[in-house]
Design a protein around this nucleic acid. Sequence first.
DNA 1: GCCATCCGTAAAGAAAATCTTACACCTGAT
DNA 2: ATCAGGTGTAAGATTTTCTTTACGGATGGC
Lengths: 113, 113
Amino acid sequence: MTTVGPTGDDLVEMLAALANPLRMRIVARLADRRDYVSHLAREIGVSRPLLHMHLRKLEAAGLIVGNLELSEDGKAMKYYEVTDFSLHLTASALAEAAKTLTPEKGPGAEEHS
Amino acid sequence: MTTVGPTGDDLVEMLAALANPLRMRIVARLADRRDYVSHLAREIGVSRPLLHMHLRKLEAAGLIVGNLELSEDGKAMKYYEVTDFSLHLTASALAEAAKTLTPEKGPGAEEHS
DNA sequence: GCCATCCGTAAAGAAAATCTTACACCTGAT
DNA sequence: ATCAGGTGTAAGATTTTCTTTACGGATGGC
């Protein structure tokens, strides 16, 4: 059985994206229905710049996707929606992912010539 | 179907604990076999105080547990091992968890008497 | 006594994440 | 022209997380 899943680094990024109350709420809202930035900001009660930042992080992790659309009255609106992610986290799954983590930036242990 | 799972806040804590390369490696090691602090620190190549801090975070999240034991030669050694956690992360699972998140510390929206 | 192993923590510095405020741009309606 | 609504981003203050360095205490063997 080789489910492959995301690399260790990608997994860390996804987990980091979800490990925040505000972002968890954002995902929850978008899971119910897609929405555009300004409206979502009002719904959740956050400033637009702040929401923008969190959306970027969620999108970078591949948990949501946004695309710019034009409303009938010509306004440019960016709609976000969740992707079909599904992560099963167990100790062994983590062990598997850990194998593909970028090696830590050590103090440059000298490689002999 | 009511799988209940952890509360939103607990889930955030667990995800935050796992969303770190070093801690992911720690869990990976402990998933293979339990170990005590000093040895684990040498294996992973980290200072003991640093490892200690990460272990605390993982334990606080309920992902690992440690207990102090006495080796034959009388040394006190703290052994850590992983717990049987299992988290299934999907958009709807997140939406469910988000319902039990602690309300944000708002600027104290006045409660009318 | 002195050294080696184990345990822990406190204090201070470096780095990263979070949040606010302010700005700039575009479109349609008044 | 001005306003209302949408978009985005940049700079700075604040907070949290990560990391190092320096301590302290306990045990057993030389």
